[in-house]
Design a protein around this nucleic acid. Structure first.
Length: 455
RNA sequence: GUGGUUGUAGCUCAGUUGGUUAGAGCGCCGGAUUGUGGUUCCGGAGGUCGCCGGUUCGAGACCGGUCUUCCACCCCA
């Protein structure tokens, strides 16, 4: 067999122990909060049938789907004509499965397939990787984790409020403060498009105003004009974006035809959040927020870091009829998603990871001789039985080498087992940070290590 | 998918208009130090210059392709 140079597909990564402990730090906080809010965990397969995935993410989304070649002689049922018709047509004959693109659509499929067992409202969370055949950049990967929480089968506004609080709690626990939750409502966007005379071009219209931050409003105004809006309509639109007072904005939106029901929902939403004044809720109405995913129908959310150049680190919204395409009508849902990999990148850039993320060990036992080593067998087990993460240096080696190892793995304490210790029954516990060491009895050692482990 | 950009030791990078045996710092290994790590000193290992092909007497350097990195579109977590 010829030797191959090891390599990884573009946009995918290995996670070593150091990175993994930081990723786990984030995941643990997200999971803990999901559970605190009463969500139940599920998992779905990495691959789904293409019939489930295609057509749910718009044309661009479909192109970003990873498709899996059929097994066996996948060309046997194709003809020359199929090949001549192009890869798009050919694909339908040779590929029936694809890697999931997000967690929401597989969840919708799950809900429909398990509708008889599910009690609504159903709250589920899911933390799994998704795959997109995108071109990688910073903060953009081909394999990345999403952490989703959705509530289906309930139209109550409390769900939106609760998810906003969930966003807030997670970022608070992460000590990530440089972010803003932007919210908007599809109905507002729709009315804006209508009053700008672009009712029929709602999607391109949204795509344009979504770019105001990036391209500036002059350029966007120009593009909207090219779509057919007149100067008066454009000025009207821009003046709305210039308005900072939320009440005035909402009032003007009523004037352009947004239903009072939607406006009062938005008002109730902000009022309810104001009640939770003990939390620092960083939420703002942003009329330019559009979001791409085509299935949102109500309120939409996006979490943007404010001091780091990075795309959104979370998002979500309400979808009234996601399960409809799978044959289950009338199930409304709302959900949010945390982008684990981007949260990691932001926290890394802002140096927000705690200095001491729980290490893999509480204590390492070092020794001077074969006899010491054997004597220590019982000590490690004893410590482990007490719930202490303990390791025994597994072979005789120079004590210097063993301390060197302790240093590198960053263990907070070493326990020294030598002839003196064996004779006295008191073992030398060394604090690797300060260098202080003291001969202690076993129960004192356990007490000390447990205290340190809980910190 | 379109356009650009990057690649030299484990890491960060030097390497003149193409010219002997490709360098540094950090890290790594060993020793100074046979019951004590982080400092210091001494010694050592480590490179098919991303990969394939071409031009040339001669390529790390030039050309083509490919993979990878990052960036701008597109889109998005």
């Amino acid at each position: 067999m010829s030797k191959t140079k090891p390599s990884l597909p573009r946009g995918t990564r290995d996670f070593g122990p150091k990175v993994m402990s930081k990723r786990s730090f984030i995941i643990d906080i997200i999971r803990k909060n999901f559970i605190k809010y009463g969500f139940a965990q599920i998992e779905t397969p990495a691959m789904e049938n293409l019939s489930v995935l295609t057509g749910k993410y718009g044309d661009e989304g479909d192109q970003l789907l990873y498709k899996i070649l059929n097994s066996g002689d996948f060309l046997s049922k194709t003809s020359k004509e199929d090949i001549e018709k192009g890869s798009r047509h050919l694909m339908t004959g040779i590929s029936e499965k694809g890697l999931r693109y997000d967690l929401t659509v597989p969840f919708a499929r799950y809900v429909v397939m398990n509708q008889n067992e599910i009690t609504f409202p159903f709250k589920r969370f899911q933390i799994q990787p998704v795959w997109r055949a995108d071109r990688p950049q910073k903060g953009r990967y081909r394999e990345f984790y999403q952490c989703d929480a959705d509530i289906v089968g309930s139209k109550g506004l409390w769900n939106e409020i609760e998810l906003t609080l969930l966003f807030t709690d997670v970022f608070c626990d992460l000590k990530l403060e440089d972010y803003i939750i932007k919210i908007n409502h599809r109905a507002l966007l729709f009315s804006l498009a209508e009053s700008t005379g672009l009712k029929e071009q709602i999607i391109p219209f949204c795509a344009e105003i979504d770019k105001i931050d990036k391209m500036g409003e002059d350029k966007v105004a120009e593009n909207i004009k090219a779509m057919g809006a007149n100067d008066r309509q454009i000025n009207e639109l821009l003046s709305l974006f210039h308005e900072n007072n939320k009440e005035i904005i909402l009032e003007r939106l009523i004037n352009i035809g947004v239903s009072k029901k939607v406006i009062s929902a938005i008002n109730s939403y902000f009022d309810a959040l104001a009640v939770h004044s003990n939390k620092k809720i960083k939420v703002a109405l942003d009329l330019s927020l559009a979001r791409g995913l085509s299935y949102y129908t109500g309120m939409i959310f996006e979490v943007k870091p404010t001091s780091v150049s990075m795309g959104s680190i979370g998002g979500g919204g309400r979808y009234d009829d996601l399960t409809g395409v799978f044959g289950l009508k009338g199930i409304s849902g709302v959900g949010i998603s945390f982008g684990l990999d981007r949260i990691y990148d932001v926290m890394q850039e802002l140096k927000l990871f705690p200095q001491k993320i729980a290490g893999r060990l509480d204590v390492l036992i070092v020794h001077f001789s074969e006899e010491n080593l054997k004597h220590a067998y019982g000590i490690v087990s004893g410590l482990r039985d007490k719930g202490i993460k303990a390791e025994l240096y597994p072979e005789t080696a120079k004590i210097k080498k063993q301390f060197d190892y302790s240093d590198k793995i960053g263990v907070p304490y070493t326990l020294i087992v030598g002839d003196n210790e064996m004779a006295s029954g008191r073992y030398m516990l060394r604090d690797m940070q300060t260098g202080d060491q003291k001969p202690l009895k076993m129960d004192e050692i356990i007490h000390r290590l447990k205290q340190n482990g809980e910190r």
